[in-house]
Nucleic acid binder design. Sequence first.
DNA 1: CCTCCTCGTGGAATCGATTACACGGAGGAT
DNA 2: ATCCTCCGTGTAATCGATTCCACGAGGAGG
Lengths: 344, 344
Amino acid sequence: MASIKDVAARAGVSVATVSRVLNDHPSVSADARTRVLAAVEALGYRPNAVARSLRTDQTRTLGLVISDVMNPYFTELARSVEEEARALGYSVIIGNADERPDLQDHHVTTLLDRRIDGLLVSPTDGGSPGMLDAARAGTPMVFVDRWIPGVDVPVVRSDGRGAVRDLVAHLYGLGHRRLAIIAGPAATTTGRERVDAFREALGAYGLPLPDAYIGQGDFQADSGRRVTEGFLDLAEPPEVVFAADNLMALGALDAVRARGLRVPDDIALAAFDDIRWFVHTDPPVTAIAQPTGALGRAAVRALVDRIEGRPGESVTLPARLVVRRSCGEPVPPQSPSPVRRSTS
Amino acid sequence: MASIKDVAARAGVSVATVSRVLNDHPSVSADARTRVLAAVEALGYRPNAVARSLRTDQTRTLGLVISDVMNPYFTELARSVEEEARALGYSVIIGNADERPDLQDHHVTTLLDRRIDGLLVSPTDGGSPGMLDAARAGTPMVFVDRWIPGVDVPVVRSDGRGAVRDLVAHLYGLGHRRLAIIAGPAATTTGRERVDAFREALGAYGLPLPDAYIGQGDFQADSGRRVTEGFLDLAEPPEVVFAADNLMALGALDAVRARGLRVPDDIALAAFDDIRWFVHTDPPVTAIAQPTGALGRAAVRALVDRIEGRPGESVTLPARLVVRRSCGEPVPPQSPSPVRRSTS
DNA sequence: CCTCCTCGTGGAATCGATTACACGGAGGAT
DNA sequence: ATCCTCCGTGTAATCGATTCCACGAGGAGG
C-alpha cells in the first residue's frame, strides 16, 4: 500500500509538502499542490489513519457501548448516533454489552486501548469498574438513555414522566383501576424511574401500586412472559399491564395469548418504547415513544462538544404517548396534544 | 496516559524488556518480569493499540459492512459475528450501508483507512467501486448473505432452495394454487435467487409464476405494502404472498389489514427470514429461517483463516421452513423433518 | 584456563504520518 | 543598494510501540 513517501517521491517534493497539501495548509504553491494531487490520484494513495492517529493523538472515532443490540430501541439509537457522528466527521465503533457488566467492561477497555476520542455509554447495571475509571480519568464521556447517579458526566435521555401521566390518564379514562407494571432491573436508572413515574401518576388518581403488581423483569422478552404469568395467577389479576420496555411487552403478549386470553378485552397492555412492529401486532400496542433519533443526535453533539473543548450539556427530551388499541377502544379524533379524556 | 517508557522507567528496565514481558517473549528473567508487571499494575498501564498497529501492521480488527442495521436479520448476524470475532481475539467495526452503494463505499473506505485486517461484506446493489477495488487489491474479504458473482471472494450464505420447495409443498398441500412473490432488488443475489427458487419450486407442481405475481420490492417495509396493494387490486389476486424478507412481510401484513382482510383466511402470507417478532404477530407468520448465528460464525472463521494465511472456504448452510398459521391451519404434530403433507 | 554458546538485556531503527524549525529567495520599504 | 519580511520548502524530531542486533556475563566443554 502506497505511503506518503511514495507520493512525495512521485511528486518530486518532500513528505512535509505532501502532508501540507493533504491537510490543506495555506503555504503550498499551486504548482506543488497540483503535482502532489496528481501523484495521490495516480497511486490511489490514502493516508494511513493509524499513523495519523499516533501522531496527532486523536482518532476521530467515538465509542458507543449499548446494553443490547437486539433491542430495536438501541438499534435505532445506534443508527442515529452513527449518522450524526458521520455528519460531524467522526466514525463510531459499537460495543454490545448484552446487559452484562463484564462485557461492558471488555468493550470500554478495548475502545480505550484504541484511543477513541470519546465514549457514549448506556450503562448496564450500576456501571462496571473500567467504565467508572474511564470517567474519573477524564475520558470525554456522555451517558445516553441510562446513567449513573453521582458520576459527573453529561446525560442525554428522555423524560417519560409526562407521558406516563398521560398513559395513566388514558387508562383511567377507559375505566381501568388495577394497574400493574413489569419493571426493569433496579440497578438501571430506566428500570427505577419508570416504576417511580408510574406510581406517582397512579397516586394522582388515588390508585395504589401494590407490591404484587410490580413484577421484576430484566428488559428481556422471557422475563416479560414470566412476570405476566405471575400476574394472571393472582386472585385478583390486574386489568392493565405496563411493560417497561418493548421486549418485555412482547413476552407479555405471548403469555396472554398462551392462556387463550385476549388483549385488550381480558387484559390491557401498554409498553415503554415504541417500535415499528407495535403497529403490526394484533392488537397494535399503545406505547410511550421516545424521540430516539433526536436522543442519539443530541448525545453525539454533547460528546463532540466535550471532545473539542466546549462544555457539553445534558439534554432531557420529553417522551410522548402513542395511543393504539391494546388498552381499549381508541380515542376517536386523535388530538395533537397529549391525550386526556374526561370520563365519558 | 502512561506509555511504555513510563513503565520501563519505573521498573528500571528498557522499553524492549517491557515489550517482551507484555508479549510474553521467552527470554526475560523472572525478576525483570515481576518488576515490569508491578509497574504495569501500579501505573494502570495499557498498551496503545494505535502504536502497536502501526508497528506490526495489524489491527486485530474486522470490518463488517451490512446492508441495513434496522433489519433484525442483520442485527442478529452482526451479533454473532462480534461474538465469534471476540472469541478469536478480534474486534469488529460495523458499518451500516442502509442499502445505499455510496454509504457502503464510505464505510469500506473508512475501514480500509483504519487498516482493518479483513472485511466482511453483505454487498448492497451490484457492489460499489471502492469495495471491488479492495477485493482486487487483495484485502482479505468474505461475502456474507449476499455476494457478487465473478469476484473471487469466499461466500458464506444460506441456501433457501430446499426450504422454498418445502414451503411450496406446504402451500400446495393447503390447496393454494395462485402464489405471488414480493421480490428484493434484482441487483442483489438474494433478491434474484429467492425468486428463482420460488419459480422452480412452483414449476415442480406445474404452477406458473406470471409476471403480475412478481412484485418488485427493495427489502423495506414500505415496498412490501405497496406491492401487496397492487396484488390485491388485480382482477384475480393471489391466494398467497411470499415476501423475500421480513420487513416486506410486515408491510404486506399492514396492507392486508388496511383493507379489512384477514390472514390467512382472505390471503395467506409467508416470509423469508424468520425473526422473533413473527411468533408474536397475529397470525404468527410462516417463515423460512436462516441459521443466522452459524452464518455469522462461519463467516468470521473464513475471514480469519484468510487473514492468517489459511485458505478460507465458502460455506453454504441450508435454511429451513418454520410453519406457523399465516398460510392456513397448521400441521397438527410438528414433525422434525421438512413439512410435507398429502392433500387431505 | 580458554573458547564457545546461550541467555538476558539495552540501544536504536522502524512503521507513516504531523509539525517545529531552519533556510533560501523574492519582494517591499527605506 | 541594503535590510527585513514573508513565503515555500525541506530536514528532522516525534508519537508509542516492536524487533533486529550487539554486547556482557556465566556455564559447559575441551
